[in-house]
């Protein structure tokens, strides 16, 4: 675990960079985590982050790749609901990286 200071608030991260307390999430926190992931956040990223946060809100699960693609398709349309599109935004692994930036727990299916 490590503590980082974001906007004068101390935030706890696990050693993989996921938030320890899901309630700590804010847009500045997401921006900080994006820098750690070497991702330049654009509107395209933010709308995926919103989709995945809504997914967690509704289902209490961090989605695996397949359900993430489905959720993106149903909210943002077919063009964006493709793994290739998500891979461009989150090159390492969309399910993991988007979950991290959105302040969700690591998807257990990835373990």
């Amino acid at each position: 675990m490590r503590q980082v200071i974001i906007n004068n608030t101390s935030i706890a991260l696990d050693d993989e960079g996921y938030l320890l307390h899901l309630g700590d999430w804010s847009t500045p926190v997401a921006e900080y985590l994006a820098i750690e992931e070497k991702i330049q956040l654009t509107d395209a990223h933010w709308e995926i982050i919103e989709v995945i946060r809504n997914f967690y809100q509704q289902y209490e699960l961090s989605p695996a790749m397949r359900p993430l693609v489905k959720a993106v398709t149903s909210t943002l349309g077919k063009e964006k609901g493709k793994s290739i599109y998500l891979m461009k935004l989150f090159p390492e692994s969309p399910a993991k990286q988007a979950a991290k930036l959105a302040g969700l727990p690591k998807p257990t299916n990835c373990l």
């Binding site: 509704q58 289902y59 209490e60 699960l61 989605p63 397949r66 359900p67």
Partner: peptide, 15 residues
């Protein structure tokens, strides 16, 4: 506890 109603409602999302 997590709500099984929420978790189970995700089943179709997982095909």
């Amino acid at each position: 506890q997590k709500n099984f109603a929420n978790i189970c409602s995700a089943l179709p999302m997982y095909d």
